[in-house]
Amino acid sequence: MTAAAAMAAYALLVGAVAPYALARARWAHRAPGIAVLAWQGLSLTFVVATVLGVGHLACSGQGVHHGLLGLLGVCGPAGLAAVPFPATPAGAASLLAPATVALLPVGALVRTVRRARRERREHADLLRMIGSEAVEHGVTVVEHARAAVYCLPGRGGRIVATRGALTALTEEQFRAVLEHERAHMRGRHHLPRMAAQGFAAAFPWLPLARLAREQTALLLEMVADDRALRFHSRDALATAMCEVAAGSVPRPALGAGGPGALIRLRRILSPQGVPSRAARLGLVAASAAAPALPLLLACGSL
């Protein structure tokens, strides 16, 4: 029971307190790649803590306390051998609850990936119909007056620019945007994005899930901005952002949070140094350790 309470407290901390701190953390925008990792670490931690907490609750008093942990194998092969698989129907039922909690985000992730794949395939079909290949840039051009540049990630991925964007941008500005999109493709940014989407679909009421999705999208844009800035001027990239935004269809003002575009623009124009190597290593280690902590806690409570 104590272990279940500890897990619940940990899950609450990770799900509803830590995300607000991370969303405000100054270092996140200075090391966006690490911050993406931190959000994924928090999300995984929440799932692990919730599964273990529910498991403890379901198993307590039924004599199969060890069964769950044994099944998960968290205490190593020795632990697994020491605890027999719960053979009784009650024991099996007590594993059902944590398994359901574990399958919730997995199912949502699978649905998100399938949906994204379908949308990408449909869009690729559309591009075959209305796009044309611009050989000199290796992009697909669509004769559309509104400005837009985007990439279609994944297998057979490509970068797409509308005529409106090509008209609005100078050669140098367009090259900067292309480098930004190439960074998305090379970095396979759609994968962490889909993970965050799936997590948010599984726990729509959870502050962590909502913030992780928003922040992951914004942080990945920053990673791509940084990549473009290695080869192109700050002015070119910032001006390109203004021009493409101005040439697209304006949408009604967003509610809370405001657009990431302004945050990105300010960041491009007035850069701040990246955190020190030691600080970066520490952040990566903490992101990796957070999901392991509840496991250690669970083992210790045996």
């Binding site: 990439c151 203004c242 493409v244 003002a253 575009a261």
Partner: peptide, 18 residues
Amino acid sequence: DPAGALLSFVEQISADEV
């Protein structure tokens, strides 16, 4: 934010925000 199928350079924003 559909399924995150496309990664746009700039998201659509309002005229004020431009």
